[in-house]
């Protein structure tokens, strides 16, 4: 059984070169492909296999959650892997399809995050609907990056909950990451890989076939004017080029939710315009883009909904029209921002 699986996967591997009927001439390629299949079988199984769900045994009531949890966990080897496989199976057919449910994509309820005695985020509540361009504004130290890290499952909430696409962000983080593309503030890449190799690595880890990776990355790189630099080692890129590369990696698998931490920080005006156009197109296609920034004029031109954070809590939230209605008509976002944050460092 495993043997056939290996051969089948070696067949699907790029560069295997198994032609029909020429086995004797290219036997070394088959051996090599089998070796490659053996070394990589776990990653392929991880992405493609999803074992069926199990029913509870007779004699044990289904309310004894412990036994069922043990069984499921035992089957899937770790809670994260179990969640990923279940989620992947559910969405495998329409991983890039639109999620048109009415439920909000991201729902943050009374989120509190404390580092010892210091409260970074205190009582944050937010709902991000689907197909929305959402901006998170706030002064330095307001908790924007901490909120984004909590969304990505890098931190565990002290109190409250963060739910992305119906799954808890920390406990089911692996399943969440199939649906999320992330760009950090300062992306750092491996210094031994070229740009196109990094893009290919990210695409392969997401389960995209090579043709799709190449087509999509070529299209994005041409739009962001990075195509000529992809041959260089990523270590030598300027800051803006690193951001662009990170953006390509985040957008390549067309996720329903894009999380960008200060995306235009470091980009020149041309690239900023291109990025804005890209973001608007993504939202028009039904995805959600959630980004944090402190460039108020760009946010004003661009976003549908805005949330202003101050000292770890939401000071105002809603569309621009709603904000103007509540806090005074005819004012720019900058004035609203200064009023709400008291123009004092949070």
């Amino acid at each position: 059984m495993l043997f056939f699986k290996i051969i089948r996967q070696a067949d699907l591997a790029p560069g295997a070169g198994i032609g029909g009927g020429r086995i004797c001439e290219a036997w070394h390629r088959h051996v090599f492909a089998a070796l490659k299949g053996f070394l990589e079988w776990d990653s392929r199984c991880f992405l493609r296999c999803a074992p069926p769900c199990r029913r509870p045994r007779q004699g044990q009531s289904s309310s004894t959650a412990t036994s069922i949890k043990l069984e499921d966990a035992a089957r899937y080897r770790s809670p994260q892997r179990r969640d990923f496989r279940l989620a992947f199976r559910r969405d495998f057919a329409n991983l890039r399809g639109m999620d048109t449910s009415a439920a909000p994509l991201v729902s943050i309820r009374s989120l509190v995050k404390r580092f010892g005695g210091f409260t970074a985020v205190g009582g944050l509540s937010l709902e991000i609907p689907a197909a929305c361009l959402f901006a998170l504004l706030g002064p330095n130290g307001a908790g924007k990056t901490t909120t984004i890290k909590l969304l990505m499952g890098l931190l565990k909430p002290t109190e409250g909950s963060v739910t992305v696409c119906g799954m808890d962000a920390f406990h089911d983080s692996v399943a969440v990451k199939t649906r999320v593309g992330y760009l950090p503030d300062e992306p750092v890449f491996y210094d031994f890989m070229r740009g196109r190799e990094i893009i290919r690595f990210c695409g392969e880890m997401r389960g995209l076939p090579v043709a799709v990776i190449e087509a999509r990355s070529r299209e994005l790189a041409e739009r962001l004017q990075l195509a000529s630099a992809l041959e260089e080692f990523a270590e030598n890129y300027s800051r803006g080029m690193k951001k662009k590369l990170g953006l390509i990696c985040a957008m390549m698998h067309d996720p329903p939710l894009l999380i960008l931490d200060e995306p235009t920080n470091g980009l020149d005006p041309h690239s900023t315009v291109v990025l804005h156009a890209l973001m608007k197109e993504t939202v028009a296609a039904g995805r959600t883009v959630f980004f944090s920034t402190h460039l108020l004029d760009q946010a004003e031109k661009l976003c549908d909904r805005v949330a202003i954070v101050r000292k770890g809590a939401i000071a105002a939230e809603g569309t621009l029209a709603e904000l103007r209605q509540s806090f005074g008509a005819g004012r720019s976002l900058e004035e609203l921002f200064f009023d709400l944050t008291d123009s004092v460092v949070a």
């Binding site: 991880f46 750092v188 990210c202």
Partner: peptide, 19 residues
């Protein structure tokens, strides 16, 4: 040690870090 500065890349992939 080699993964230290690029841990964010591994953590943004849909795969547990241990794997």
């Amino acid at each position: 040690n080699t993964e230290l500065r690029t841990l964010w890349l591994l953590l943004s992939l849909p795969r547990p870090l241990a794997d």
